[in-house]
Write a protein that binds this DNA or RNA. Structure first.
Length: 324
DNA sequence: GAAATTTGACCCAT
DNA sequence: ATGGGTCAAATTTC
């Protein structure tokens, strides 16, 4: 593979992983499409729904809701809005913090679709949303060969939230469990911790708990574990079995896991041999966030360090995990 | 008690 | 009429 080709693939990957950071960081969206939303539809009379058989008396709800929701829903027509989608086995690791606001069983789909909006949608009016749905073919591919389940993630609208935690902190694209102590890391890694994944981005305990479920979920891959901070797992872990093989970092060329595992290891300890199992934390022992230096600041946006991507060769294998 | 998630109802586009 | 997206009360979790 030529360097140029690799860079091209890196650019594509960046688009996939940061579909919302389009202004400075990207200009192309892969697999773009149209989706609908009411969130930013035209202003109108502000009609509000009323439950026919509410679980609670409504009476005051119109006023209360109007007070809590400064931008009452008022659309008469859904506005077409551009979206981008990708297929990934690690849907959580997109660098933003999301709050789930709904889940629905989709007609003809085996798994429900989860709806998320930016955590800062209320505070900052960020319109970004996404849906996550596990692919149907997981029942065939995921359960037999041990490959992680794939999720189709559709992003709608771009983040307008300012330089808050979601941007200051990078994507936690970690797929390996790394001790949170600094003992095993060089100074530059410490800097990365402080600057890239500072305390501001540490997920609240409950979120980390959910992320742990995601980790277990992603751990269905024989080679890796996954973890994130700030997002919750769209998948349930009840259909996942924990693999003890995750105790070891193994570069897996099947999906994205290989990249982050290997890349992280190389960057966190550039002068040392590949991480040993002793450096990898058992999920059972995991108590803190996992940080990844895979993403670096570039032009005000968080992006992927091309070097780290190029550390490992089989990038095409990784990219094959996405749908183009 | 606060925050996040769950879940059934509601609403709109097709 | 129906499917999909959203709301918001109830529930769960910490």
């Amino acid at each position: 593979m030529t360097l140029g080709r690799q860079r091209e693939l890196v650019a594509q990957l960046r688009e996939l992983l940061f579909p919302a950071t389009t202004d400075e960081c990207s200009s192309v969206k892969l697999e773009t499409g149209e989706s609908t939303t009411r969130a930013d539809a035209v202003a109108c009379g502000g009609r509000r729904r009323r439950r026919a058989s509410g679980k609670r008396a409504w009476g005051h709800d119109d006023e209360a809701a109007a007070g809590s929701n400064p931008q009452p829903r008022c659309s008469k027509r859904r506005k077409k809005q551009q979206s981008s989608s990708l297929v990934t086995s690690t849907p959580d690791f997109d660098g933003y913090q999301w709050r789930k606001y709904g889940q629905k069983q989709i007609e003809g789909a085996m798994y429900p679709r989860s709806y998320y909006r930016c955590t800062w949608s209320a505070e900052q009016g960020c319109p970004a949303k996404r849906t996550v749905q596990r692919n149907d073919d997981d029942i065939v591919n995921g359960g037999v060969d041990g490959s992680p389940p794939k999720y189709t993630v559709v992003y709608v609208a771009e983040h307008t939230c300012s330089a808050n935690e979601s941007m200051e902190a990078p994507v936690i694209l970690e797929t390996t469990a790394v001790p949170t102590t600094n003992d095993n890391r060089p100074t530059d890694a410490d800097d990365l911790e402080n600057n890239v994944a500072g305390p501001a981005f540490l997920a609240p305990p409950e979120t980390r708990h959910d992320a742990a479920a995601a980790a277990v979920d992603a751990a269905s891959s024989p080679a890796t574990t996954a973890f994130t901070a700030g997002t919750e797992s769209p998948a349930t872990s009840d259909d996942v079995t924990w693999s003890s093989a995750s105790d070891h970092v193994v570069v897996d060329d099947y999906d994205s896991s290989w990249m982050f595992a290997g890349a992280v290891d190389d960057s966190w300890a550039p002068t040392t041999p590949p991480v040993e199992s002793s450096l990898v934390q058992d999920m059972d022992d995991f108590t803190g966030p996992i940080r990844s230096p895979v993403h670096v600041a570039a032009g005000g946006c968080w992006t992927i360090d091309p070097y780290l991507l190029l550390v490992n060769e089989p990038i095409t294998n990784f990219l094959a995990g996405f749908s183009f």
